[in-house]
Amino acid sequence: MTMPTQTVAARAVGATKIYGRGDTEVVALGGVDVEFGAGQFTAIMGPSGSGKSTLLHCIAGLDRLTSGQVFIGEIEISSLSERELTEVRRDRLGFVFQAYNLVPTLTAYENITLPASLAGRSIDGEWVDRVVGAVGLASRLSHRPTELSGGQQQRVAVARALANRPSVIFADEPTGNLDSKASSEILRFLRNAVDELGQTIVMVTHDPASAAFADRVVFLSDGAIVDSLTDPTVDSIAQRVRSLEQ
């Protein structure tokens, strides 16, 4: 399927990340060019150590490139100050990590509205209600993270990411700690967000079944993009993964 004339929500140009120096130098990203279309659900796959997390962190403004550029919409973030970068994260991006997504002292609701609170913005109650309803957490809002199951915690994290109406949601193995039922629930939410709300999502995953929820899969190996698949299925992904591992 060809995308309709799409805008780019985020892109990296010549993204290079080198850790360490001299003997201990590790090239985690070796000049990656990649674009993530608005309203698209992209999965990033690749062997362990291939640079998936590094790429995600750099595009999401959590880490800085050694060289190259990252754009969120029209904003070139590599040149932003720490302060401006923080505001970009707060106001334009959403995050879901593999674990430890929530502040333990805040209730589920407070966690969901955290970015707005941090910005001192008033909360769009209607929208938050809708998001909360969508992830099925309405009855759990006053609970603290410790009182929620792992799957529920991840749903809160997704809700938090959505509540902010970000340009892009970045997720690093969001279902890595969950069983397959809870996993597919989370992935279905993400999928729905893309389909119904036009949300842009970039997700790192190991699991072909998870990646199959995406519109496109980008394959990373040794810090370079080696392949990509549009409208993937579990089978086609598994095949590519196998061929990459050879």
Partner: peptide
């Protein structure tokens, strides 16, 4: 550490 990192990731300024 983690909690503070999380706060920073979702948009807490250093000052905050």
């Amino acid at each position: 550490t983690r909690e503070i990192g999380l706060l920073r990731a979702v948009g807490s300024h250093r000052r905050q």
